[in-house]
């Protein structure tokens, strides 16, 4: 029988969503063109070549190394791209993703990633063209709802605030906003204006967000309502404690 990874325990909608994010079995909700994505990332001008930090690996003449022979470089590494970052902030009001699950999604499903998981934001460093592929995946699928999340390279403030009246998460730099029923972004992730208005699609409704979220909340799906998850978490904590206990040391 083929091995099937078991990503996360639990039977609640939140646990199921967590499994979906980890396994990349996520629904695509919108289309964002490559040029638009490059513009909002702000690392290079849309349509320009990828700047590089070293020549392509094929031209470099790599040293003899069994590991290098086994591990195939990612397209970005093979081309010698720069390492660049993208950072998302997610509202704690039922945003589909949370920093940990963005990191799980990146680390399980992509190669050459350096995820940084913080309380209200998640930053990911990768080679530039790999980063664009990864960011596109997160931006186009149900992992991101642009009303409750934002691509924010700096000034990420907003994840723990009450939502605005229009139901979107506060953005101090006004990078993206609700206009005519859709979220538009006219600045890059660090707040520098760009030459276009990128349409990021309709934000999901409050009830839909409650169904798609990976956040346990007492006013939606409480953590303690998922017995299997509680049992799993308690077991992990118990084993961590026991394995760290060394009386003779």
């Amino acid at each position: 029988m083929a091995y099937k990874p078991q990503y996360y325990p639990g039977n609640t909608s939140v646990a199921k969503n967590r499994r979906k994010h980890m396994s990349d079995d996520v629904e695509k909700l919108r289309d964002i063109s490559d040029e638009d994505l490059t513009a909002i990332l702000g690392h290079r001008a849309p349509g320009s070549d990828y700047p590089s930090t070293h020549p392509p690996l094929a031209e470099m003449g790599e040293p003899d190394c069994p590991v290098r022979e086994v591990v195939e470089p990612t397209p970005g590494a093979a081309a010698g791209d720069r390492v660049r970052y993208s950072q998302f902030a997610d509202s704690m009001y039922n945003a589909p993703a949370v920093p940990y699950w963005r990191s799980y999604h990146a680390a399980i499903n992509f190669r050459g990633v350096d995820p940084g998981t913080l309380s209200g934001r998640q930053v990911n460093e990768m080679r530039e063209r790999d980063l664009e592929e990864y960011t596109k995946r997160q931006a186009e699928t149900e992992i991101t709802d642009w009303g409750l999340a934002g691509l924010r390279g700096c000034t990420v403030h907003g994840h723990s605030l009450r939502l605005q009246e229009d139901g979107t998460m506060f953005d101090m730099l006004d990078r993206r906003r609700l206009e005519g029923g859709v979220i538009v972004m006219d600045k890059d992730q660090v707040g520098v204006p760009i030459d276009r208005k990128v349409n990021l699609g309709k934000p999901i409704s409050e009830s839909e967000a409650a169904k798609r979220t990976t956040i346990y909340r007492v006013d939606n799906v409480p953590f303690r309502s998922d017995k299997e998850v509680v049992e799993h978490v308690q077991r992990v904590w118990e084993l961590r404690t026991k394995y760290g206990f060394q009386p003779k040391a």
Partner: peptide
């Protein structure tokens, strides 16, 4: 409430106008 700055105060975009509506 939360501050609505006139200009971006940190990061690579420092100094850009925010023009928050």
């Amino acid at each position: 409430g939360k501050n609505l700055p006139r200009k971006v105060t940190c990061g690579p975009g420092t100094g850009s106008d925010v023009n928050h509506p």
